[in-house]
Amino acid sequence: MQLHFTTRHDDHRIALLAALAISIHIIESAFPSPLPGIKPGLANVITLFCFIRYGWQTALQVSLLRVLISSLLLGSFLSPTFLLSLSGALLSLASLYIVQWPFRQHLKYQPTAIGYALIASISHICGQFLVAWYFFIPHPGLFKLLPVFITFAVLLGLLSGIITQLLINTDTAKI
């Protein structure tokens, strides 16, 4: 018996982008961070790129694949780290979708990559923070850390927004 799959061009594109995102995620996890929870989040650049260029369906598939496969490769599948990663990814995509929804007919008025990146990074850290607070450290003192987290989210979100814009500017029609 032979299994036969037919794949479309979209599938190849998602696979390629997910592979890129997974590589970035794993390379990034090798670097130490000053505070647990703060990392550059460069894998999010790929998600943002997918969202802006191909729409939320592609971005959702790519980011779910990234979270799942990189957790399997790093050995954190179904651990707290995985839950935090998943919640951040889902909430950031949901808020990107909510921001885009009123402008879906008017592409001209949509925010550019920098605006989307700010939204994505802030909602990512908020999602992670709420899950961490609700499930893992239910202590009100944890909220004293939130301003620090949001400050870093804004700075690193601007950085990833600029990188995403540069990625969109270059000729990527081949993907």
């Binding site: 605006g115 700010l118 600029i162």
Partner: peptide
Amino acid sequence: STFALRINGADLVILVLTIMLLFWVYNRLW
């Protein structure tokens, strides 16, 4: 054209909201 960074009105609105959020969070929690 590669290094062109354009910002439109929606970006500015998001940026202003972000800065307001930052002020609010520091004020409220610290």
